[in-house]
Simulated assay, not measured.
Amino acid sequence: MSEKAVLVTGGAGYIGSHTVIELLNSNQSVVVIDNLTNSSYEAIRRIEKITEKKVIFYKVDILDKKALLEVFQRHEIWAVIHFAGLKAVGESTRIPLDYYHNNITGTVLLLEAMKESQVKNIVFSSSATVYGDPAVIPIPETLPTGATNPYGRTKQFIEHIIRDLCTAEENWNAALLRYFNPAGAHPSGTLGENPLGIPNNLMPFLSQVAIGKREYLSVFGHDYETPDGTCIRDYINVVDLAKGHLAALNKMKDGPGCVEYNLGTGRGNTVLEMIHAFNKAVGRELPYKLVDRRPGDVRNLTANPAKANAELHWKAEISLDETCASLWNWQSKNPNGLEDCPGEAPAESVICYI
């Protein structure tokens, strides 16, 4: 283990938990914080099972600066990977103030805690939603940002905040990772996406249809200017995505300042193509219905990942068929996700959370 640690906020979530696995497998020292409002402590137990390593975990909310500072005081942190936040596009249009308060205010408090603790390296979990309805496909990082929903705007505003901080103060380094559509699960089938309530994203919803928890999938919009009328997205395997965070973390050691990277495959698939691909993994046709467009959705979000390929020496390698197979492996082994497991964090992990 290296002496200094990486702090992972939101490390019990879908992408965060898979990134913690990759960090531990690369012999990094890791400290995880999560408030567990949209995740489960069982994810931490599964990480420990997969890696056979103990995870240092604190039940802490990023809105609680006092607790954040306590974590920084207890551990020698050299970098932060920041996942914590609310993350549903549709929900953000209904409760925008919750999103702005949690995501933006929480990040400002985290950055203040980092500054006071002399930690100046951050890898930020941004999103392709910052591009809004892009004029160029595949999307390069040079394209102007202009999110079309509150969730995307929180990511866009946080990017500006981090960029301004890097400009104003010396020795700050930040990687703003704009990732496209995470999908799939850990190949062991032990860990995967664990949506609480009704899933907001295509693949976890489709997998719940496959196990009988949902009657059918609603396909939002079938009149887009695409080959079959449905939206196009760039689906990247969550393990590839996790490895992208390690590559970005390694980049911090070069002192790059503030840099942006698309993490995607560079290949777009329509919703109907994804349904057919998942049908293949499951071995049968799954029911779906074509319904009206969803507020905030755009026609096509496909990455140009050339910059990340070149500068981070990283590339998405896992195929769409493998991604669908890993998702079905996870869902069939865990029909209720992590809901059947006791998710309470140990009492000693609670410092002072809101």
Rank of each mutant, 00 (worst) to 15 (best):
M1V: 14
T9M: 11
G13S: 06
I15Y: 04
G16T: 09
Q28M: 13
S29Y: 10
E42V: 14
K53V: 13
K54M: 08
K54G: 10
L63D: 07
D64Q: 15
L68D: 04
L69S: 05
F72K: 11
F72C: 04
Y99S: 00
G106V: 08
V108T: 10
L110S: 05
M114A: 01
S126Y: 11
A128W: 09
Y131D: 13
I137C: 14
I137K: 13
I139F: 14
R153H: 09
Q156E: 15
F157A: 12
E159G: 01
I162W: 00
T167R: 14
N173P: 05
L177F: 06
Y179I: 12
A185T: 03
S188P: 02
G189S: 06
N194S: 14
P195V: 01
P195K: 01
P195M: 02
P195F: 03
I198L: 13
N201G: 08
L206R: 04
G212I: 07
Y216W: 11
G221D: 01
G221M: 02
I232P: 05
I232Y: 07
D234K: 01
L246H: 03
A247E: 12
A248E: 05
A248R: 06
G257L: 14
G264D: 02
T265R: 04
R267Y: 13
E273K: 00
L286P: 01
L286S: 02
V291A: 01
R294T: 09
D297N: 05
N304R: 07
N304S: 11
K307H: 10
L312T: 09
K315L: 07
L320I: 13
D321P: 07
N334H: 15
P335I: 02
E339N: 15
P342M: 12
G343S: 04
S349A: 15
